[in-house]
């Protein structure tokens, strides 16, 4: 009896192993096919001119300058707006707030907001930032809208990171007379930093790839200038790529593929920064 059971369990074990393997690899294959297709189509269009030109009706003259700079402008301001708010909210919720009904209500709402479709944030952004605060279709309006979109994710991941800091660290700091602020500033935050950063970069990656809310607030498709102030109109990489991909001319589909490559490079670059920062801080605070 026992022997048979063992055989069966071992069989299930090996089936499970193979199944996990197949599933992991098949998703990687899909990714590889996509990357291969995009690079083959787009690589010929990649050049310095492509980075330096504004959009054009001629595929060989079309470039990504306004979209790339728009994306960078937006991302900068999204970081400036969402990181302080997100991290400080997480600190408050984890370290200071009393665990009562109101905080639980806030927590549930933040978790729910993380699941709201992005187009809804676009509608909100249009009503509040574009119309009510009269920011118009500016970099600032877009950045505020995107910040709203990614704040819940930043807050949730920062809280997870802060919660993972061992209680003994805090107690140790209190024991030598540190105030709560000193404990958080010198112990909790540095230890939680890698986790916080990972959450921040992941949500930034989401912000750079989103189109729906920006189209909703009326970020534009044809912009032949680089934004100079936060109140200037702008366009972003995914909007530009979407526009090129829906053109009838096949040559524009190649331009779209080149745009996707640029977008991927920006994303990889951001992820590389995240990994670097994480490794750097991991070495410093090991316990």
């Amino acid at each position: 009896m026992i022997k048979n059971n063992l055989k069966n369990r071992k069989k299930i074990d090996s089936i499970f192993k193979v199944a996990s393997k197949i599933i992991t690899w098949s998703s990687l294959v899909v990714l590889a096919v996509l990357l291969y297709h995009v690079s083959i189509t787009g690589i010929s269009k990649l050049s310095l001119d492509f980075l330096n030109n504004f959009p054009s009706r001629f595929p060989h003259k079309a470039g990504i300058k306004s979209a790339l700079s728009g994306s960078i402008w937006m991302l900068t301001f999204v970081t400036l707006i969402s990181v302080p708010i997100g991290v400080l909210s997480a600190i408050y919720l984890e370290e200071y707030s009393k665990k009562n009904r109101i905080t639980r209500f806030v927590e549930i709402n933040i978790a729910n907001l993380a699941g709201v479709p992005s187009i809804v944030y676009g509608i909100l952004g249009l009503a509040i930032f574009v119309r009510f605060f009269q920011l118009d279709r500016s970099v600032l309006a877009g950045s505020f809208t995107m910040s709203l979109l990614i704040l819940p994710v930043i807050i949730i991941s920062s809280r997870e990171a802060i919660r993972a800091v061992p209680k003994s660290i805090r107690l140790g700091a209190y024991a030598v007379g540190a105030t709560k602020y000193q404990t958080i500033r010198h112990h909790v935050i540095p230890i939680a930093l890698p986790g916080i950063l990972t959450g921040v970069i992941l949500s930034m990656s989401r912000a750079i790839g989103e189109t729906a809310p920006l189209i909703m607030i009326g970020a534009l498709t044809y912009v032949a200038f680089v934004p100079e102030t936060v109140m200037d109109p702008f366009t972003t990489l995914p909007i530009q790529v979407f526009n090129w991909a829906s053109r009838p001319q096949a040559a524009f589909h190649e331009v779209a593929a080149a745009g996707i490559i640029i977008l991927l490079i920006v994303l990889l670059f951001m992820n590389a920064i995240a990994i670097f920062l994480r490794n750097y801080s991991n070495k410093k605070y090991d316990f």
């Binding site: 504004f54 279709r137 189209i215 009326g218 970020a219 534009l220 498709t221 044809y222 912009v223 032949a224 200038f225 109109p233 526009n243």
Partner: peptide, 14 residues
Amino acid sequence: GKIHPKVRVTVGIS
């Protein structure tokens, strides 16, 4: 834009 480079024309697709 080639004739009037200082004028900013923006086109959306709503």
